[in-house]
């Protein structure tokens, strides 16, 4: 297996040393805890520290991805995750390229975040100037990102192309403690921002024009949403891989939409379903030696199909709840 490529992001900013050190200890504690549980219950896969990290990272992804995905899917922007994942791949390539050229030790995930965020803002700029989200411009961003990544990697001499599979398809065994810390930081940023701006994001998602009339700065929240998507995509990329990462933004959300009535309910359900997919997927992936991203997505799709069936049963049982005619609402109490 390829050794973890990333180096501590702290090399960039010495000021962040203390909090990162603290987070690193917390990740260590989580690892000790899982190891102890595995020991007690005789779960073989919990003997490995990389599996502790994988489960931690997976659980965090399974909160972040549906959280952001719920807003994206219901604005019919599911494709943005895919476009950003492919530009994040270019970011990885930039990181590897710069490292091999200058001998620096920047984590490719850090350059991936930078490039993906820039791409996110570029997509928003295109959408704002052309007055619409455009699947053509999205497809152009997607392929440009991937092409740039491919070219930069092929330019690289020194066998780096060998390690590229882990970025394309994801890899459990490369999740280092530093990666886990980076994920915890991304998770904290994403959940904090969504908690604070939940109402605005919901309003914009439900009805953009009404949100504007209500005085909400819609372009600003669109930029925020896309930037958060970039962060989630890069965070999830390590396990899921570039090609499949967008599935985590979409599949659990689509499953939850089959079951939930309300938005908050849908958010919660999508997180629960994503957790099931991630935990089952990682476990299966370890036991059968299959690629993690693919296994997780297959489980998620299985969950989606089950949700569709359950939703059908649910709506058949609630057959008496079909829309009532308007006469139902004819007694306003205002007069």
């Amino acid at each position: 297996m390829t050794p973890p490529v990333s180096l501590p992001t702290t090399a960039l900013i010495p000021l962040l040393n203390a909090p990162v050190e603290l987070l690193s200890r917390l990740v260590g504690l989580w690892s000790d805890g899982l190891g102890w549980v595995g020991d007690r219950l005789g779960i073989a896969m919990l003997e490995y520290v990389f599996m502790h990290h994988a489960f931690l990272v997976g659980a965090l992804i399974a909160v972040m991805a549906p959280l952001i995905g719920t807003f994206l899917v219901h604005r019919q922007l599911a494709l943005i995750g895919d476009a950003l994942a492919h530009t994040a791949f270019a970011g990885v390539a930039v990181g590897l390229f710069v490292n091999s050229l200058l001998g620096t030790g920047i984590s490719p995930y850090v350059t991936a975040i930078v490039v993906a965020v820039i791409a996110a803002l570029a997509i928003e700029l295109i959408a704002e100037t052309t007055d619409a989200y455009n699947d053509v411009s999205m497809a152009i961003v997607l392929s440009t990102g991937f092409a740039l990544g491919a070219v930069l990697i092929s330019l690289n001499t020194g066998g780096l192309a060998v390690g590229i599979n882990q970025y394309l398809f994801g890899n459990l065994s490369t999740v280092s403690r530093e990666n886990a810390v980076l994920l915890v930081v991304l998770f904290a940023i994403v959940s904090l921002v969504v908690t604070i701006t939940y109402k605005q994001l919901l309003y914009v998602t439900f009805d953009e024009t009404a949100a504007r009339v209500a005085g909400i700065d819609v372009p600003w929240y669109n930029r925020l949403m896309t930037t958060l998507t970039a962060l989630v995509v890069v965070g999830a990329m390590q396990i899921m891989g570039v090609i499949l990462v967008a599935a985590m933004l979409v599949v659990p959300v689509a499953a939850a939409a089959q079951l939930a009535r309300g938005f908050r309910e849908a958010l919660l359900a999508s997180v629960v379903l994503a957790q099931i997919a991630v935990v089952a997927g990682i476990t299966l992936s370890f036991n059968y030696n299959t690629t993690a991203g693919g296994t997780i997505v297959l489980v998620a799709v299985g969950v989606y199909i089950a949700a569709v069936l359950a939703g059908k049963v649910q709506s058949r049982r609630a057959g008496d709840e079909v829309p009532e005619r308007a006469d139902d609402a004819e007694k306003p109490t205002s007069d």
Binding site: K199, L202, T205, F206, A214, G215, I216, A256, A257, F263
Partner: peptide
């Protein structure tokens, strides 16, 4: 829109400009 959202969630949006970044 096939978005899952309840009537009361929609109506509550009317309170959002009052609440700003605070809690409902």
């Amino acid at each position: 829109k096939r978005m899952p959202i309840t009537v009361s969630e929609v109506v509550l949006m009317g309170r959002f400009p009052h609440a700003g970044f605070g809690r409902v």
